[in-house]
């Protein structure tokens, strides 16, 4: 049994990020692992010790402004402590930005985040929109245990290739904020196609302990089952000290993933 907290589902619910919750729940369900979904809204209390995995998606700017105060003033310290302690977290777009130190608006206003990840975001004028492919191999993730698949598949025509787990992640980004990483986090990967954190340094996302932040909508986890399973595995490991995930038939998942890789990296 794992408990999945969904942070501010009423406010941070656009861009299809709900698919991540669906993917985590279904992949547990298909393996006979029970899940319990815990929505965390404005004013709700939460005991992070009872939570195994937390998801924090993107929202409209207005929604993000409404929840930011609640998050920072009420939940910030306890969530930061839980992340330091190894809570498994996936944060996307607005959620990712709020885990950092601050968001600097184009009028020069500094909106605080919770400072759980060593990064900050600067409001940009250009919207970075489009499909994104990220390579996670060889960027320190292996050393930290985020080995998302052993070797890179050779791409090409999806249906004629053997479908092997990939170190590549595919998604869709849509943001104007530019995120810059500090030395306290590792990038999640290197951008092969798309913009990534800031459209400048070729990095996408950030990793700290068991927390991942990134800009990938899409939804991210259904099409990147290797990452979904790694999150589940870590959540189980942290709670029960062991985690063996039964293999699933991921033909459709990897077909969707490789169709996009083939299209974007051609």
């Amino acid at each position: 049994m794992i408990r999945i907290a969904h942070l501010y589902p009423e406010h941070m619910n656009i861009y299809g990020d709900r698919g991540n919750i669906i993917a985590l729940s279904q992949r547990c369900h298909w393996r006979g692992i029970e899940t319990q979904l815990v929505p965390v809204g404005i004013g709700s209390s939460i005991d992070w010790g009872k939570i195994d995995l937390a998801f924090f998606g993107g929202g409209q700017d207005s929604g993000q402004a409404l929840i930011a105060r609640d998050l920072v003033t009420r939940l910030g310290a306890s969530l930061k402590a839980a992340i330091d302690d190894g809570l498994v977290v996936l944060a996307i777009c607005g959620g990712y930005q709020l885990l950092g130190h601050y968001f600097l608006t184009h009028t020069g206003e500094k909106l605080p985040g919770i400072g759980a990840m060593d990064l900050h975001t600067v409001g940009g004028t250009k919207r970075m929109i489009g499909n994104i492919v990220v390579e996670t191999e060889g960027l320190g993730l292996g050393a930290r245990g985020w080995g998302l698949g052993a070797k890179r598949s050779s791409g090409g025509v999806p249906s004629s290739q053997p479908l092997t787990p990939s170190p590549l992640l595919v998604g869709f980004e849509n943001h104007s904020g530019q995120t810059y990483l500090g030395p306290g986090v590792q990038p999640l990967g290197r951008v092969l196609a798309g913009f990534g954190n800031n459209g400048e340094d070729g990095s996408e996302g950030a990793v700290y302990q068991n927390t991942i932040g990134c800009y990938m909508h899409g939804s991210l986890l259904p099409k990147n089952p290797q990452l979904a399973d790694e999150l589940i595995r870590r959540a189980l490991l942290r709670r029960y000290g062991r985690a063996e995930l039964a293999p699933l038939d991921d033909t459709l998942e990897l077909r969707a993933q490789q169709a996009m890789i083939a299209r974007v990296t051609r």
Partner: peptide, 9 residues
């Protein structure tokens, strides 16, 4: 629309 994330909503 080039983003199909909406299928998940």
């Amino acid at each position: 629309g080039t983003d199909v994330s909406w299928l998940w909503d």
